[in-house]
Nucleic acid binder design. Structure first.
Length: 500
RNA sequence: GCCCCCAUCGUCUAGAGGCCUAGGACGCCACCCUUUCAAGGUGGAGAUCAGGGGUUCGAAUCCCCUUGGGGGCACCA
């Protein structure tokens, strides 16, 4: 039997961290065993599903490099795979056929209960501390009773007979699990009274129809599994193998949610997390290689990943660790690649500056390449580029005068020192404007005056960048250029006059 | 309430009876490097393996109970 697994996202929200992780594990599993990875859209919740969400999910997965072997048509690309269509709303006739069959075999029955009746049942059960459960009012109606209800104009839902007994299965991650059907809440609705099918039913019909051999999903579905097994059996289908992944948790250890955590992949992407880091981090959330390695590309993960090495406890999402991995991966990117990824963030910052009225020089990739050695080790996020180099591309530099004065110096000393430094820099610049030359000249000045190098360098740093934390000073001077460096030093001295 | 799952440093985890006076990583602290910030290097604090019973010559590892946490119990997915 061919190994086939799937991710079945519901377009009721943008791509969620948890969905991405489940997709990743399915993808890696398929890669590792040479199986087929299927993507199916579960859009039967028409009220909440949107096309925008669907696009966000598909694009997000694609961006991460999680590609599927079979799936629906997207953006001009035709659907792929022999089991289509891969959108549930296009498979309604299949569910209809399946439910008709269950109905005719009396494995399911029409239920005429009204929402009010069901709510009353539940309230009564709650009052007596009973678990919620369908009371079975319509389970054994005679043909005549059904006709009577139809005559009243009631539209029936379809309920699946759960039956009695214990359902057992062997979960690849959790081992042997047994659940008594009495704990299942009674017969479940598989088709709404408006004719649209429900999740528990559609997953089983589709997994069966698409010959899914391995269902790898979140632990939140563990309790639903017996219901699914019963449905597979009723449908006359093979029961797939299950593997329930540990949940990703909020800091308080509850299931990760939008309320308590940042859950949209796209938000992380916008901040400047790169796909390599996200994939790497997500894989390590629940899976471990069993060695002390931790930097893995998507391809390497595919080689190493095994469900047997997924452990069963939930995992708190740790943004600090993600950031660390992000820095690791950013350091590993080739120059051209890094430039391309970082440029949009710089441009966005500069556009903001321009909107504020600043004169801005929009950089091209070629302008960024020489800066790479200065910033590469300083980028926890792609977006961090802006704070590091924006002052190179903006004419107006807002310098806080007080910042110019090092702790050990007073205003007069600082002003004089900046004047001396200006002279040295101008002299060096007239010959060759290079980092080594600048450093030698300025250190000589420091020695001649008996200063601490750090004091002079900090004063210059603030004068030319407006900041106290920057890439290395001499490289920054070179990147700025002689003329602008001198101009900023002059402006700084003028600013100091206001302090006296 | 009922059912199911889970339980090793703050966090992610290694550990599948003796190799564990529990290893790694993130974060944290210190030192080194150093013009700032990073990065890197070295060292450190940090887990009586939730608690209690067993089984065994021997248990973080197996069993049971307790506790704690989580998930599920919709005409949501």
């Amino acid at each position: 039997m061919a190994t086939r697994c799937r991710i079945a996202p519901s377009p009721t929200g943008p791509l969620h961290i948890g969905t991405a992780r489940t997709a990743l594990f399915n993808f890696l599993f398929a890669r590792h065993v040479g199986g087929t990875f299927v993507l199916r859209i579960e859009d039967t919740d028409v009220a909440r599903s949107t096309l925008g969400n669907e696009r966000d999910i598909l694009e997000g997965l694609h961006w991460l490099g999680i590609t599927w072997d079979e799936g629906p048509e997207v953006a001009g690309q035709p659907a792929r795979g022999p089991y289509g269509p891969y959108r549930q709303m296009q498979r309604l006739d299949l569910y209809r056929t399946a439910s008709d069959r269950l109905l005719s075999e009396d494995k399911a029955y029409p239920c005429y209960c009204t929402p009010d009746e069901l709510a009353a049942d539940r309230a009564a059960q709650e009052a007596t501390h009973q678990p919620p459960r369908y009371v079975g009012r319509c389970a054994h109606l005679t043909a005549e009773q059904r006709r009577a209800r139809e005559a009243e104009g009631r539209r029936p839902a379809v309920r699946f007979r759960v039956g009695e007994g214990v359902v057992a299965f062997d979960d690849l991650i959790r081992g042997h699990v047994e659940i008594d059907t009495t704990a299942l809440g009674g017969d479940l609705v598989i088709v709404r009274s408006n004719g649209t099918p429900l999740y528990h039913f559609t997953v089983c019909v589709d997994d069966a129809a698409m010959a899914i051999s391995h269902v790898i999903r979140g632990e939140d579905h563990l309790s639903n599994t017996p219901r699914h097994i019963l449905l597979f059996r009723a449908l006359g289908a093979d029961v797939p193998t299950f593997a329930h992944l540990p949940l990703i948790l909020n800091a308080d250890r509850s299931k990760m949610s939008k309320r308590k955590s940042q859950t949209a992949i796209d938000d992380y992407r916008a901040e400047g997390f790169i796909k390599e880091a996200i994939v790497n981090y997500l894989a390590l959330l629940g899976w471990s290689p069993g060695t002390e390695e931790e930097i893995f590309s998507l391809e390497q993960l595919g080689e190493r990943f095994e469900l047997e090495r997924v452990h069963s406890g939930g995992a708190v999402f740790d943004r600090e660790r993600l950031e660390w991995l992000n820095g690791q991966w950013i350091r590993r990117l080739p120059d051209e690649d890094l430039v391309e990824r970082v440029l949009p963030y710089l441009v966005t910052r500069l556009e903001e500056r321009r909107a504020e009225g600043a004169t801005v020089h929009m950089p091209s990739g070629d302008d960024i390449v020489p800066l790479l050695p200065l910033v590469r080790e300083r980028l926890p996020l792609l977006g961090s580029i802006a704070d590091l180099v924006d002052f190179l591309f903006v004419d107006e530099l807002a310098v806080e005068p007080a910042l110019l004065v090092p702790k050990r110096w007073d205003v007069a000393t600082t002003a004089a020192a900046l004047g001396d430094a200006r002279q040295v820099i101008a002299d060096v610049g007239s010959i060759s404007f290079e980092a080594d030359e600048l450093e030698a000249g300025l250190r000589a000045l420091v020695d001649a005056r008996g200063w601490k190098a750090g004091d002079l360098f900090m004063a210059i740093r603030v004068a030319i960048t407006g900041r106290t934390a920057t890439p290395p000073l001499f490289d920054t001077l070179v990147a700025l250029g002689l003329e602008r460096a001198l101009a900023r030093l002059d402006a700084a001295r003028e600013a100091l006059e206001d302090l006296t």
